[in-house]
């Protein structure tokens, strides 16, 4: 993706001069709108962060805080390392690890099976190609949310509840990735296969030595999208993990709201906000740092 601020000072300056005044006013308006928009996006999470640095009594009395408090170490320490639950094994760190495994496992699993399936569909003369295509793409019709009850029973009956496999596999059972790689492989020039065939390369060799390397950027882009998707899963992990040591950090967020609704204790607002900040940090950092891949992945995958 090209950077949008590809300024060309030479051309622009010649144009700017005659109506500099007008441009100035309109650019002030433009910047104001963008700043307001940025604040609208930024404020909620920023305030979650500032609030998370106060102790819960202050928050309880005064609500969300804009200043930075002195409880940063305490709240984040507690959110990350304080063990809760009967088995005393689940802390923020464990939940982060589980989220990481879910995010990476989901992304890698999805990419591997979709690359293979898309390869089969695009590059092979297949008897049941159309049938396979439709079998796979019908899955786009039905999000996990609407078939969640029977899915839950299937995973249970395989004894896969509270396992990473049970957590990840049902989420992979859709065609989004396959669809994306199919589109991409279709755009790869036919000459490549012909050349490879002439060189005597078989299907395996072509896939590993040629197709995968040229798909690298695409894979990276789709990896980021899938990782964020997996990390942010909510309903499914909430149902399928009953063992505290298997909780993901987003599942942990649910415990916060339940405690809030039950009202038996003064909610630990500071720690809750700290946990919320910890939960959004990894995917946000990935999206921000690998922005160009992320944008590419999003724009390409949703097409």
């Amino acid at each position: 993706m090209t950077d949008m601020t590809s300024e060309n000072p030479v051309i622009l300056s010649s144009k700017e001069k005659p109506k500099a005044k007008k441009l100035k006013l309109s650019s002030i308006i433009d910047h104001s709108i963008l700043i307001i928009g940025s604040l609208f996006m930024l404020m909620p999470v920023l305030m979650a962060f500032t609030t998370s640095t106060h102790d819960h009594v202050t928050i309880h009395k005064e609500g969300l805080m804009l200043s930075i408090g002195d409880q940063f170490a305490e709240n984040y320490g507690a959110a990350m390392f304080e063990k809760g639950g009967f088995t005393e094994t689940v802390d923020g760190l464990t939940m982060l690890m589980n989220s990481l495994i879910l995010g990476i496992g989901f992304a890698v699993g999805k990419i591997v099976i979709s690359v293979l399936a898309a390869y089969a569909i695009v590059y092979f003369r297949l008897k049941f190609a159309t049938l396979a295509f439709w079998i796979i793409f019908t899955t786009l019709l039905l999000p996990l949310e609407v078939r969640i009850l029977p899915s839950y029973e299937v995973v249970h009956s395989f004894g896969l509840s509270n396992t990473y496999t049970g957590l990840i596999l049902p989420l992979i059972a859709s065609a989004t990735g396959t669809f994306y790689f199919r589109q991409f492989f279709m755009s790869v020039p036919d000459e490549l296969v012909e050349a490879a065939k002439i060189d005597g390369a078989g299907p395996f060799k072509f896939l590993i030595d040629i197709l995968v390397p040229i798909s690298k950027t695409m894979v990276a882009a789709i990896f980021i999208i899938m990782f964020v998707f997996g990390w942010n899963q909510y309903l499914w992990p909430a149902l399928i993990t009953t063992d505290e040591t298997m909780f993901t950090i987003i599942r942990g967020i649910r415990q916060i709201i339940l405690a809030y609704a039950e009202g038996n204790n003064i909610p630990e607002h500071g720690q809750a906000m700290a946990l919320a900040v910890i939960a959004v940090l990894p995917p946000v950092l990935i999206v921000v740092f690998f922005q160009s891949w992320f944008v590419k992945g999003l724009v390409e995958s949703e097409k």
């Binding site: 639950g85 009967f86 088995t87 909430a238 009953t242 063992d243 505290e244 649910r254 415990q255 339940l258 609704a261 039950e262």
Partner: peptide, 8 residues
């Protein structure tokens, strides 16, 4: 015995 908190 191992108790497990299951939510509401």
């Amino acid at each position: 015995i191992t108790p497990v908190y299951k939510g509401g």
